[in-house]
Design a protein around this nucleic acid. Sequence first.
DNA 1: ATCCCGAGGG
DNA 2: CCCTCTGGAT
Length: 218
Amino acid sequence: MKKLSKKKRHEFLDAIYDLLFSQYGKLSCSLDHSNPLELMVATILSAQCTDARVNKITPALFKKYPTAHDYAIANQEELEDDIRSAGFFRNKAKSIIGACQVIDQSYGGELPNNLTDLVKLPGIGRKTANVILGDAFDVPGFPVDTHVTRLLNLIGLVKTDNAVKIEQFVIEVVDEARWVNFSHLLINHGRLVCVARKPKCEQCVLNKKCELNLKNNC
DNA sequence: ATCCCGAGGG
DNA sequence: CCCTCTGGAT
């Protein structure tokens, strides 16, 4: 795959996108939220945790902490209890409070809408920043999570777990208008069909395109 | 035992 | 590059 020209890589990635789009269409973020702050909190909670579990926690959480200021002045141990079942609760509580203190003090309570400022917030890395940009601000980005990493490696498009390299590879050859939904499509497919433990290759639309399937069946 | 829409630190 | 942080689901 490395030897393919940029044009060929573009065509191959477009084919992958089209196959996934034909099955799932335009997807929206699966983390329940109604504003950028809620999406930021939900995305922090989603680390090494299913979105279903996050969505179970957030209704009560968002009601209890409606603004960045509410998190900024929150008692950390109390917030830890509020988010405990999402796992990594100490780190996540620290991240939420730390990020919200900066948002409250430096940005007037509103999240910045650019990557540079978002990744400066404590606990906000590139993945979380790209999710916020794409799903809350309609700014194109390509979030790379465990599913995106796994699927693109299985297909044979990349041979690295380095999220930045994967992001660069995709945004170089895929049209900007497709970045956000491509990430959603890969994540959705990774949860429903190309699951980590036992990929359902026999019911996968990427069947003919995927190195994993070629190794298994050809 | 392995994985889930990660991030920070060494 | 490595490690740690954590509960829940399968």
